[in-house]
Write a protein that binds this DNA or RNA. Structure first.
Length: 857
RNA sequence: GCCCGAGUGGCGGAAUUGGUAGACGCAGGGGACUCAAAAUCCCCCGACGAUGAGUCGUGCGAGUUCGAGUCUCGCCUCGGGCACCA
């Protein structure tokens, strides 16, 4: 037995190879017009201060893709940055008195230090944070350019108002209709705010989804539904008597075929008419007050009990001039959708039915199932639009027709009669970007008494956030900062006031991918670099961003093209999208003296047979089932311990092998040790093979070669289709095969060199180590991707299962390419088949070549 | 409430186009080595049945098909999003 080769500790290995990569600059991305590029991007993190398993998972996946593409010969761009503005920094300021900027900078520092040991193939020279004035200054420049191009507007919008803290609350800060700090009942308020005119792009954003072949179908579907294109009828209901100047109520409906079933008209509490009516009715005014005490989120609005008030006003039914319908104000009508007014058709809408039953309004059936005369009682009859129904009262068209046909017929008729017009509407609303907060990108505008609201001059950019702010009072510190606010008007030069609103942090994340292509440019992008690096070839991130972030980015890329910062080809910036599942964890909660929830980190909680309790106080802890890891819920876990104990390769191998990437993963400790053992075993094997001079028998050598090539093929296809867990399984299989193989030393070394190359994207440090142990020069990272020889992929013999009446009863082995007739003959000779047939003749014999045989009798 | 997903052994999961359900890993059981333990190596491992024959089995209920984890319809449970969390 020769002396075994020295096997190094993972700490030594990981440190050594990370230094070697750094020194060689293997991951620095440089434009090279002679090489094909590949841009891999994972959604950049919010710098919460601690990386969690979701980050490890997300960035390892991206790293697997980046290293794999690098091995395949691409010039890879794989950058990293920080989504650094946002509320948690202000919350920390309020809780601990630390400045949001200082808190954020420290967190970035900490998180970078936590990410680096993972050995990611990131070009750190491109790193930036969205709170860098160099970044948000460019964002301000684009805001001004977008304003000039008519892509920005100001209009009123509803916000959650906390009357005690005198501040605007995010939806997340509203808990059960109350402010999370003050506990006061939240009110709706109207403010004039800045908007991006994304709704102008509704049709374009919708149509372009068809071209996003590299996106998951579910994300495309979610985006389509979000944009929500509908065709319907806009029709006026004339007011019969007395409502001041207003003569009619404009209603939008996608079901004009049910007009004859209308029994009331309802308007939103924010409808102008509601305000007019409230002036002369204390009752209505009181009801509107009540409606105002609701949070603004649609989910909250849908969850509350549906109520309404009869205004006493009547409108004429547009098709039945003799019929008058009552006008109600109802709390479930969305002000922002359609015209903010609807007609109720209780027979064919459950909500209208519930409302009508509650307030004793009549129910009029419009259609029934073709073969039925069953009328509506407590369940509204709402068949899919493409199903034929029989109309009892029809606006137009055949007696029996689909809802779709009837809708079109009704629109046609109403248009011809001059009663209304067919319109296409979108659910997508303009993007409100105003935030009444400090820690965000200042909106570069100035309010001047003489000139109105005007953009800041470009030469005055960036409009930098002031440092000297305090968070002891609620509200926006920028509002209280007299010195910062006071500026000369960019237009007339007279004293004026700076805009104190900052931008939604979604703006920051809507173009960072473009900035990575030229992170130090003096303009938002450099066209040459954007031309080369765009688009992102593979974007990876959480499914929770499937709608808003991706839609805003798609809009922003179009806007950047219009204002000249992105080429036309980049208006769909992400060629391929992969939505990874979330890392979930239980949530631990106690309540404070006032009964408000307090969340705790998992490492603050201790478990015993009596349940969970706080380590510090022994206070019992309520365990809430697993949900997405979120900073606000504190259900996050620290992966650093794992890396300290087992090393980055083990952490990476485990997180990649444990679950399919698109599925949620519940973090557990099980399996990590196994991953570590496997990697150690591979090291021992490499040491053993390094000087193994034995020659093996030919059959074993050939079998090992074939197994190796099958593995190349499987691992490659696994990575290509984001089935990393499958790739890992195949690597396990091959390593087990090698361990048991009687092949010779050289064959085993060859096989193991392939294994090193195949595992390099997942466990890069160990792969380098094994590569060098087996006497190879240079980096495995530069060694290229192995190619499978197709001749070695297929077995000579094929096993075909035999089913009898659809149940597996036997199997035969036949040489590949055996004719169907020959297979049939062999099947009928099979003992098990003969036993089941018991002498009778099969009715049918189905042979699927190289797959299966089914005997039917 | 509305939109989108997911559900397979004790556990994580595999089954690429409708064609052997349970690859691979974990946990568990048995054995080898050892004075012993750890480490390592070998074998078993869906349920019922006896270890056999066989029967059942992919959240539940129907359906299409020679054949369904996979397709269709109706449910249940869990998760995500719902425009100011990121």
């Amino acid at each position: 037995m020769p002396t075994p080769m020295k096997v190094r500790d993972f700490r030594e290995i990981e440190r050594a190879w990370q230094q070697a990569w750094d020194k060689a600059g293997v991951f620095t991305a440089e434009r090279d017009d002679n090489r094909p590029k590949y841009y891999v991007l994972e959604m950049f993190p919010y710098p919460s201060g601690k990386i969690h398993m979701g980050h490890v998972r997300n960035y390892t996946m991206g790293d697997v893709i980046a290293r794999y593409r690098m091995a395949c010969g691409y010039n890879v761009l794989h950058p990293m940055g920080w989504d650094a503005f946002g509320m948690p920094a202000e919350n920390a300021a309020m809780e601990n008195g630390i400045h949001p900027g200082a808190w954020t900078r420290r967190n970035i520092e900490d998180m970078r230090n936590q990410l680096k040991p993972l050995g990611l193939s990131i070009d750190w020279s491109r790193e930036f944070a969205t709170c860098d004035p160099e970044y948000y200054g460019q964002q301000q420049a684009m805001f001004i350019e977008m304003l000039e191009m008519g892509l920005v507007c100001r209009k009123s919008a509803l916000v959650n108002w906390d009357p005690v803290d005198m501040t605007v609350l995010a939806n997340e800060q509203v808990v059960d209709g109350k402010g999370w700090r003050s506990g006061a009942e939240v009110e709706r308020r109207t403010l004039t705010q800045w908007f991006f005119r994304i709704s102008e792009f509704s049709e374009e954003l919708l149509a372009a989804i068809d071209g996003l072949d590299g996106w998951p179908e579910k994300v495309r579907l979610m985006q389509r539904n979000w944009i929500g294109k509908s065709r319907g009828l806009e029709i006026d209901f004339d007011i019969v008597a007395g409502a001041g100047k207003q003569k009619s109520i404009k209603v939008y409906t996608t079901r004009p075929d049910t007009l004859h079933g209308a029994n009331f008209v309802a308007i939103s509490a924010d409808h102008p008419l509601a305000g007019v009516l409230a002036e002369s009715s204390a009752e209505i005014a009181a009801y509107l007050d009540e409606c105002r005490r609701t949070a603004v989120s649609e989910a909250a609005l849908e969850a509350i009990e549906k109520t309404g008030i009869d205004t006493g006003l009547k409108v004429r039914h547009p098709l039945l001039p003799d019929e008058a319908l009552p006008v109600w104000i109802a709390n479930f009508i969305l002000h922002d959708y359609g015209t903010g007014a609807i007609f109720g058709c209780p027979a064919h809408d459950q909500r209208d039915l519930d409302f009508s039953r509650k307030y004793g309004l009549p129910v009029i059936d419009v259609f029934v199932a073709p073969e039925s005369c069953k009328v509506v009682e407590d369940i509204a009859f709402v068949p899919p639009k493409n199903v034929k129904v029989r109309y009892l009262r029809r606006v137009a068209g055949e007696e029996i027709q689909t809802g779709e046909e009837a809708v079109n017929a009704a629109i046609d008729r109403c248009e011809r009669a001059g009663l209304g017009r067919g319109v296409v509407r979108y659910r997508l609303r303009d993007w409100g970007i105003s935030r009444q907060r400090y820690w965000g990108c200042p909106i570069p505008a100035v309010h001047c008494e003489a000139c109105g609201t005007v953009p800041e001059k470009k030469e005055n950019l960036p409009v930098v956030l002031p440092q000297d702010v305090s968070f002891e009072q609620p509200g926006n510190p920028l509002d209280r900062h007299a010195e910062w606010k006071s500026v000369p008007c960019p237009k007339c030069g007279r004293p004026a006031e700076r805009e104190t609103e900052t931008m939604d942090t979604f703006v920051d994340s809507s173009w960072y991918f473009a900035r990575f292509t030229a992170p130090h440019a003096k303009t938002p992008t450099s066209m040459e670099d954007a031309e080369y690096w765009m688009n992102v070839d593979q974007y990876i991130g959480g499914v929770e961003h499937a709608i808003l972030h991706l839609l805003y980015s798609r809009f922003f890329a179009r806007a950047m093209n219009i204002i000249g910062h992105l080429p036309k080809k980049a208006i769909e910036p992400f060629d391929a999208m992969f939505t990874q599942g979330m890392v979930t964890h239980e949530i631990y909660m106690t309540r404070d003296a006032k009964g408000r929830p307090l969340h705790h980190f998992p490492d603050e909680v201790e478990f015993s047979d009596d349940g969970a309790m706080l380590k510090s106080t022994g206070e019992p802890v309520e365990v809430i089932p697993s949900a997405k890891m979120a900073k606000s819920k504190k259900n996050v876990i620290n992966p650093l311990d794992l890396i300290d104990r087992f090393g980055a390769d083990t952490a990476r191998w485990y997180i990649i092998s444990d679950s399919p990437p698109e599925r949620d993963v519940e973090w557990t400790n099980a399996g990590v040790e196994a991953a570590s053992k496997h990697l150690q075993r591979m090291q021992r094997m490499a040491a053993e093979f390094a000087d193994d001079q034995r020659s093996g028998d030919e059959a074993a050598d050939a079998a090992l070669l074939a197994a190796t090539h099958r593995t190349i093929s499987e691992v490659t296809s696994g990575i290509d289709r984001f089935a990393f867990n499958k790739s890992v399984a195949e690597l396990y299989k091959l390593v087990n095969f090698i361990a048991r193989s009687e092949a010779g030393g050289e064959s085993k070394r060859d096989a193991f060199r392939v294994v090193a190359r195949l595992m390099a994207p997942i466990t890069p440090h160990l792969a380098e180590e094994i590569w060098s142990m087996l006497g190879c020069n240079g980096f495995v990272a530069d060694a290229g991707w192995p190619e499978a020889n197709p001749d070695l992929l297929q077995d000579e013999l094929v096993t075909m299962p035999i089913q009898v009446n659809g149940k597996r009863r036997s199997e035969i082995q036949v040489p590949r390419g055996t004719a169907g007739d020959e297979i049939k003959r062999l099947v009928l000779e099979d003992a098990a088949v003969a036993r089941y047939l018991a002498g009778s003749q099969p009715r049918k014999l189905i042979v699927v070549p190289e797959r299966i045989v089914n005997v039917v009798f």
